[in-house]
Amino acid sequence: MKRRFELRAVKEAPQERDLAFATVDDGVWETKYEDLYGTLDFGASSAQGPRESMEDCAYVIPRARCGFLFAAVFDGHSGFAAAQYLSEHLYDCFSDAIDEGAYGPECSIDERETGGICCPVELSSLLADSFRETDQKLLSWLQSSAPDDEKNAGATATIALVRRDKLVIANVGDSRAVLSRKGQAVDLTTEHRVTGSGPTVEAEVHRVEDVGGWIEDGRVCDVIAVSRAFGDREFKGDGAKSMLQRGVSEEWWDQEFADSKDITGNLLEATPDVVEAPVREDDEFLILATDGLWDVVTSHEAVTMARSDFKKRKSAEYIADRLTKVALQRRTEDNVSVVVVDLTGKDGWTKPKQKNSERWKGVFGMGN
């Protein structure tokens, strides 16, 4: 039986960390960042939709490193294990990378968080490194600790580091980040797929084929619809051998076809595209969402709806919930996770203030 639509927001208490500043202490934030950047209003929403299980997750840390709000949407497949792991570890890996790469005397005292850790840091390469490192740790964890039916799980990820002066977006897979610039929708991500046309699709197809893979029916090896993802151990390293044999056992192809394939590298990768840009005066808000929203709502429609609600003094939380419900009303066939971040602050539209917790994680059926 299919489950009915349901929303659940799980607000976690801060956790103890051995490493400094997995999140920024409130006292540090108020001293260093409150006057400079302020606290951004955000909303997050997750819904299972018509799927038999929930594999999406939305995650927000409003007071993150270097004055940023950290927001992410994770879209799992072949189970929830990979998306859950990313929600628990990707930010920490990013934070650890800041600790490892941001010491030194080159920054002034007022640019430091504590103990010599310097902000700003070069974020594009740091994010790419932390994505790849997290993927390696995830693959090891899936092999050793995931339930047997989720050892081949994977997940896409779109994350945003947001301040009033700066946006940094990193994307792996087919979720999307959209900026409202004076009411116009600006896509900040490109979906990593092997169907359709355009330079990104062509580059992804060539990368897959160069390591011995193939594209069939818009899918990598006729199996998976995205060309970049975390996890998916059957499409990385030696795992491809088991994917080829599974195809034989499932009668997707015969043994002769499997024997003819010489896969020499990763068919999927977790290297993100990273966009780093200043926030302009006419930039209004940011929407992150999994493809369960974008399959039925265009970027322009989402921005138009959200902007209308902001002008009616609705909160970002209200708008995230509304976008999720619109996707369900339009009969999306997928799970949906949405994060909305207001960039305007007190000088923009006035709206009710939301009590932002240390972390926000929205999932349905977590741990099932």
Rank of each mutant, 00 (worst) to 15 (best):
F5I: 09
A9T: 13
K11L: 11
Q15F: 10
Q15R: 14
Q15W: 07
G27I: 07
E30F: 11
K32W: 11
L36F: 03
G43S: 02
S45M: 10
R51S: 10
D56W: 01
D56E: 04
V60R: 12
I61H: 08
R63F: 03
R65L: 15
F68A: 09
A71N: 12
D75N: 04
G79D: 00
A81K: 03
A82I: 02
A83R: 01
A83P: 02
L86W: 05
S87Q: 04
S87P: 00
E88Y: 00
D99T: 07
G104A: 08
G104Q: 07
R112W: 11
T114R: 14
G115S: 08
C118G: 11
V121K: 06
S125E: 15
A128N: 07
D129Y: 06
Q136L: 06
W141H: 15
L142M: 03
P147Q: 00
P147N: 04
D149W: 00
G154N: 03
A155V: 04
T156Y: 02
I159K: 02
A160H: 11
A160N: 07
L167R: 01
I169V: 14
N171C: 07
N171A: 07
G173Y: 09
S175P: 12
R181F: 03
G183F: 01
A185L: 12
V186F: 10
T189W: 13
H192E: 01
H192G: 04
V194K: 08
T200V: 14
V201R: 15
E202G: 03
E202H: 14
V208T: 13
V211P: 15
G218V: 06
R219L: 11
V220F: 09
V223F: 14
I224D: 11
V226I: 13
A229M: 04
D232M: 11
F235L: 14
F235W: 04
D238L: 13
A240T: 15
S249Y: 09
E251P: 00
W252Q: 10
W252D: 13
D254Y: 04
I263A: 03
T264W: 00
T264G: 12
G265V: 05
L268I: 07
A270H: 05
V274S: 09
P278T: 09
V279P: 05
I287C: 10
L288P: 09
L288G: 08
L288S: 08
L293P: 09
V296R: 06
E301P: 01
E301M: 04
E301R: 10
A306F: 03
R307C: 01
S308P: 00
S308L: 07
S308M: 02
D309A: 11
K311W: 05
K312E: 13
K312N: 11
L323T: 00
V326T: 14
V326R: 08
A327W: 07
R331C: 11
D334W: 00
N335F: 02
V338N: 01
V341A: 13
L343P: 10
G348W: 02
K355H: 13
R359F: 10
W360Y: 15
F364T: 10
